Simulated assay, not measured.
Amino acid sequence: MTKVVRSLADLKPLARELSAARLAAEIERERRAAAARLAEQEKRVFELSVGPVTPLRRVDRVLHARERPAPEPRQREADERAVLLQALSDEIDIDTLLDTDETLSFRRDGIAAEVVRKLRRGHWALQAQLDLHGLRRDAAREALGLFIHDSARRGLRCVRVVHGKGHGSPGREPVLKGRVRRWLVQKNEVLAFVQARASDGGAGALMVLLAGSP
């Protein structure tokens, strides 16, 4: 409903309302202008600090599929271990294969006696060692088969097998000593072996010469 002005007295409140509205609008304009100036100043400060800024061009990303790790031949390795375990018998008679010297050394057919003497004197540098201490028969047999197979595959020539002197065995008998000799004779990679020198383990170890040596 329109307000009717009846006298000059009625104009005074209206004037006051219009003046207050103009003042509020002016204050709001000043507030917005001040906020815009502050934003511009902050922008200039950033540009002066880091230099001109160029927006990066958007490039489509390409996601490459991750390569899957190569499958592990676990079944083949298990089969190889089984073959090595089965191939080494405890029943083979090697008495006729050992040279009847004080250490019962071994050399395969075609290997000269001089090779055994060189092996005993340490002619070839020791390249690897297997210690069978504390292993039971089947574990020792498997470990020895894998050790000889792996050493030959790597091209090693002279290795040492420590079977112990039997001091910790029942009756103080060297349980593994005879078995290790039987197992080594059955490995085609083995050309010869001799009891180690005292400094290399003596009666508790064997120096083994592998195929590929002169």
Rank of each mutant, 00 (worst) to 15 (best):
D109M: 11
R74H: 10
E47W: 04
R16L: 08
S49N: 12
E26P: 02
R74W: 08
A112G: 06
A34N: 03
R16A: 09
R74G: 08
S49V: 12
P71K: 04
D109Y: 10
E28C: 03
E102I: 11
E72V: 15
P55Q: 01
A33W: 03
L84Q: 01
R44C: 04
A35W: 01
T100F: 11
S105P: 00
A113F: 07
R66E: 02
R61N: 15
I92M: 10
V83H: 10
R107P: 02
R107A: 10
E114N: 13
I92H: 04
R16Y: 04
R107C: 09
E47K: 03
P71R: 09
L48N: 10
P55C: 01
A25I: 10
L18Y: 05
L63Y: 11
S89L: 06
L98S: 01
A33N: 04
L23E: 11
I92F: 06
I27A: 15
A82H: 11
D99M: 13
R37M: 04
P69A: 02
E102A: 14
R22F: 07
R66S: 06
F106V: 04
A34M: 09
P55H: 01
T103S: 14
L18G: 02
P52Y: 12
L18A: 12
A112E: 09
Q86M: 15
I92T: 14
V45L: 08
V45T: 08
L88M: 00
E47I: 10
R107D: 10
I94P: 01
R57L: 07
L18F: 08
R76T: 15
R81N: 08
H64Q: 15
R22P: 01
R68W: 13
V62W: 02
D60M: 12
R76Q: 14
R66Y: 07
R68S: 15
L97M: 10
L38K: 13
V50A: 02
V53L: 05
A113C: 08
A82S: 11
P71Q: 09
E42A: 14
